[in-house]
Design a protein around this nucleic acid. Sequence first.
DNA 1: GTCTATATCCAGATAGAC
DNA 2: GTCTATCTGGATATAGAC
Lengths: 191, 191
Amino acid sequence: MLGKDARHEQAQREIIAACWRLARDEGRLGFSLKEVAAAVGVQAPSLYSYFASKNAIYDAMFADGNRAFLERMRTVPTSGSPRDTLLAAAAAFIEFCVEDPVRHQLLFERTIAGFEPSPAAYAIAGDVIELMRDEFAKLGIHDPAHLDIWTALVSGLAAQQLANEPGGSRWSGRVAASVEMFADFVFKEES
Amino acid sequence: MLGKDARHEQAQREIIAACWRLARDEGRLGFSLKEVAAAVGVQAPSLYSYFASKNAIYDAMFADGNRAFLERMRTVPTSGSPRDTLLAAAAAFIEFCVEDPVRHQLLFERTIAGFEPSPAAYAIAGDVIELMRDEFAKLGIHDPAHLDIWTALVSGLAAQQLANEPGGSRWSGRVAASVEMFADFVFKEES
DNA sequence: GTCTATATCCAGATAGAC
DNA sequence: GTCTATCTGGATATAGAC
């Protein structure tokens, strides 16, 4: 049997899962609390037993999405050559973005009216940056400029794909060439 | 004296200008028609003499922003070396994005609830693509993949700047290095 | 064209009984 | 914790007089 706190947390997870489903179905984050309540089988005011406000729900989604992002990037294989690792990381990132447009919007664009992530939720996003910096260091890439150009490049491919051809592969299919360009640039002195 | 149609168009321009001001001040595109009306000195329903709906206003803003974008990119100097031209184009694009975050959101992210640009407004955006393709051809860049990677790279720099450090220059300051990377890549066979 | 008045609809959030 | 009822506040859009 679950204890009371565990039940409470389980209910919170179910609410957040319903929010993700609604957002994906509608293609936007503008779901109403009434819809959320209906999706989990309660009345709207009951949600306030689990979240203090709608922004608290967005915050939980933001944290949830960043945990998924961290998990995904952790599982990128790093056993091959530096170029293999870069390609795997770029492909994983772009796939993560493209497979869920509303998650991408919540995590990487800052576009919801009055919502600002809490420090706790934001810290998870910081963990991903740290992970990337560590992995790049292992590849011999230490220049902060290179890291910034990397994030611009791969997030740019994902964003162009989502904005101009959602569901397609015109930009996401350029990931190999883009990584080649980047690797040529950062490894040029060593060859 | 202005004719009646010219007056009407002038009033439309004033309304759109007020919308841009409001959006910039509030940092978002969620202004209300009541605010717009107050800004131009009329009551809200009077706006319907000039625009059929709020989405029609967004559409006019979208067209207006794309005209400004086209104008800006047209004035990029192309008299220097190919690398100079690329750098000037990238810098102009990023400056255009960063100087007006809400315009960037309207033009390049697709994030307003029920708004889809009309074909007429969208055609202006297409003109910019055409301009870019022509200029790239003059530089000897014909591969569509290179054009896609270019847009991903420069729009990625701008988007990262806006999302993570609005008002700063951490990513926009990497434009020279990024263009160097890109130019090395697309011109590599020629050197 | 512009106005006042209003229709219509919806949102997030709270009060208080059970 | 959950419910019903309600508060409070907004939005876009229309009707119809002037």
